[in-house]
Amino acid sequence: MRYAEQVTFGGSALDRAGEIRANPEAMAAARTHPDARAIALWRGKPLIVRIRPTILMRLPMDHPILQDAVEEPIFLGREDGAPLFAFNLSKWEPDQTDMAALGGFLDPSEQHHPTLEDLEVFAELRRVMTWLSPRDAELAATAKAIIGWHESHGFCSKCGAASEIADAGWKRDCPACHASHFPRTDPVVIMLITNGNSVLMGRSPGWPDGMYSLLAGFVEPGETLEAAVRREVFEESGVRVGQVDYLASQPWPFPASLMFGCHGIATSEEINIDPIEIEDAIWVSREEMVQAFAGEHPRMLPARKGAIAHFLLENWLADTLD
């Protein structure tokens, strides 16, 4: 696919500097480098400057807000030669926050730390992802995903003992049984299934009214991407799929997926949904999809910008899948 790496969260060519992660001397030098900077997250929300285009904050390593860090920072890599680290500030408690809104599908709340300027706030990444530059989006997604992994993998899955951060945050070691654990990424297929001039769209229970997207599902152990596409589409919609081609991928840190965008050709039309999996599925013509993208469809909202579903549909409409 000619525009495969233009998807949100990918394609910024970040130097991840993996060769120095396990070198304590190199990491100590990186921490004290005069140009080293910190990316801060609070409960998965990156710290941004609320302007357009939105900027991901890069703080000096001695900024007072970093005293609220939960544990050792994660080394993200180098930007123009300068080391970058991610700090998890989740133990900080804002004075005024609607805690019920946190974790919502598109959490609109913002949190302001008293040591920061008025426009410097923590904001939900789903809401601001299309406002960020490719580099800032990749940094925010990487930091969110790796910090989220540490929060949910504090104990050894082999023996149950508390594990410890190693390799600048890219590994956890168990001091009891000496097992090593590495960040998890879950493969997910998301499918542009076409039948002539139409594409298959579905919606999950609990989504906002009018929201439809491409069908998607996790790849199972021992399964190819092509097989996962055919299985997931049939399980969710009852539609059979023949030829499957890979198109593009997208890191999706909600919480830790890698989305594999695929194009599949339907060999059947009849829809028979599994109500446990999805709430509805429909065939949508190109003409109707143009209406939806323009916000003029009577039933369906446009796919969310920034998500790979929007990216694939946009390229389908533009005839640029190949």
Rank of each mutant, 00 (worst) to 15 (best):
I271K: 06
S268D: 01
R21T: 12
I55D: 01
S180M: 12
Q250G: 00
V219C: 03
E71I: 03
P64R: 09
M289S: 11
V70P: 00
A17K: 05
D107I: 03
M1R: 11
H153Y: 08
A137K: 10
T115D: 12
L132F: 06
G81L: 09
T54S: 11
H112F: 09
A13P: 00
W316M: 11
V284Q: 15
H150M: 06
L225M: 10
D68E: 11
V241F: 04
I265D: 02
P94A: 05
V284G: 13
S180V: 09
M211D: 13
D322H: 14
R240M: 02
E223M: 07
L192F: 05
H178E: 10
E120M: 15
H178N: 09
R16H: 10
A17E: 04
A13H: 10
L102A: 04
H297D: 15
E71V: 01
P251K: 01
H263Q: 09
I165E: 07
W207T: 08
A137D: 08
D274P: 06
N195G: 06
E164L: 13
I282M: 12
P114N: 07
N88L: 00
E164N: 04
I55M: 07
S268A: 00
P208L: 13
E110M: 15
M129R: 10
P64E: 07
A145V: 00
W149P: 01
R286K: 15
L215S: 09
A22K: 13
V188P: 05
E277K: 15
M129E: 03
Q243E: 14
S152G: 08
E288K: 14
